[in-house]
Design a binder for these strands. Sequence first.
DNA 1: CTTATTGTGATTATCTGAGTGAACAGCTGT
DNA 2: ACAGCTGTTCACTCAGATAATCACAATAAG
Lengths: 263, 263
Amino acid sequence: MSFNDSDDPRSTAVEQLEAFGLSAYAARTFVALTGLGEGTAKDVSALAEVPRTRVYDATAELREHGLVDVQQSSPKRFTAVSAETTGRRFRREYTRRADLLAEALDEIEPVTPNTEQRGVWTVTGREMVSDRVVEFVDDASEEVVLVTLEALLTDDVVDALGTAADRGVAVRVSGMDFSAGDEEGGRLPDGCGFESPRAWSGVPAGRLLMVDRRRTLASVLVDGNGEHPPSARDETAIWGAGETNSLVVVLKAMFSWLNGDLG
Amino acid sequence: MSFNDSDDPRSTAVEQLEAFGLSAYAARTFVALTGLGEGTAKDVSALAEVPRTRVYDATAELREHGLVDVQQSSPKRFTAVSAETTGRRFRREYTRRADLLAEALDEIEPVTPNTEQRGVWTVTGREMVSDRVVEFVDDASEEVVLVTLEALLTDDVVDALGTAADRGVAVRVSGMDFSAGDEEGGRLPDGCGFESPRAWSGVPAGRLLMVDRRRTLASVLVDGNGEHPPSARDETAIWGAGETNSLVVVLKAMFSWLNGDLG
DNA sequence: CTTATTGTGATTATCTGAGTGAACAGCTGT
DNA sequence: ACAGCTGTTCACTCAGATAATCACAATAAG
């Protein structure tokens, strides 16, 4: 009868609504009302397979979120707001939450004057690695050296490099697999030096990053086998911080050897 | 010892993290790690009041979200990403969710050619009412007439009025309490006719909206007594759609009487 | 080698929410 | 007015998830 398949719009809608904190009944009720446009508890119960007697709770919950309007008649009639309004509501609410969270965490964060660290940290997942790259580049005060595959140079990273360059940081980017070697210069913001691939051909594909010679990151792409999310779990990185950190020392040496002028 | 008060940054952070779908342990673990910068399971357990043996699960959960990095040593050491990165991650994830949701709902939405409706719908909450106003104005094809308190003319509403005017809709806005009567002209986008308050002085304060003479909304501000959220639950609106809808008929008449030229 | 500490897994307790049914109120048609 | 029906609310059970505790294996330090 009704597909519970993955790409069914109703399933995805329910899934996302539940992610936004709604109960299962409320989510199913809402998609049913969206399909009906307007209906009674009975209608909803039939279409959403929600017990009729709980439709009232579900609609009350939805009303609190401003997603459903009620007609005070007998039988009560319910209607769902438009798709655009729903999207706008949740977008607004959750960006506000994210701002609140970042603000609160900022107050908690201790003053960490680039602590010297002994060990090496690990990250997995392409997005997660990109986040670390952005975070470290945002912290840069003097110098950024980045060697990366073209495919990993996402907008986030490019933006971070741009703002770093704007505040006077010496930014140098080099590609591992840029075919022409210079066509990528256009994607980089002003102030970012770009260098054609030199000796990087033999280096395992991924990224290499060095920030202020005190913080380094190295990543490789791996086959996404054996991981549940079919994609995006396909990059593994290690990073370290501090002048004497072993990874920092090694990567500093690598950059020096392969790119003589970095001393 | 530790405040569980409302405006404690740690409490708000935990609260928001849980809203983003993290378990209580994961949320507390994350704020503890943010405060520590770096620490072992023991450290976290002491500070976050999470059983030590559960810190490993909590950090695993956080790692899946890309919020924590792990040092593969014994004892394992954990570190939390920066506040900015955290905010960015969740902002991105949940705006994507909102987009997905809106898209899925859009596919479900039936072709509702401005159905004729008999009843009158109710909405409460200032934001919710604003959402309806925006929704209806976005639907306008010919004419929008809005009478509103100045305080209720939020950016959302102004934007909606602007885009409506841009696509050729005749937009007319009038104020109930604008002191000078014309100083608000600047806030309104081009193409929106603004009229000084005329006979609106006696009308209960709130908003009146008429779209294409087929859909109307009326709201009043009420004291937020007896409602749990101390504010924002302070506006109550009713709306209706359809040429013969009683509320539409009444408000059409009101607009005509009070503003002769709308016949 | 011994001991304290760390990591992993299994186990139990608690709680929220899904699902069900009974009781009450209100409308409708005779 | 009455009876039957529909609509609404409330109270209860059950299941799944999460929190919390414990027992044991692995590791590091002395």
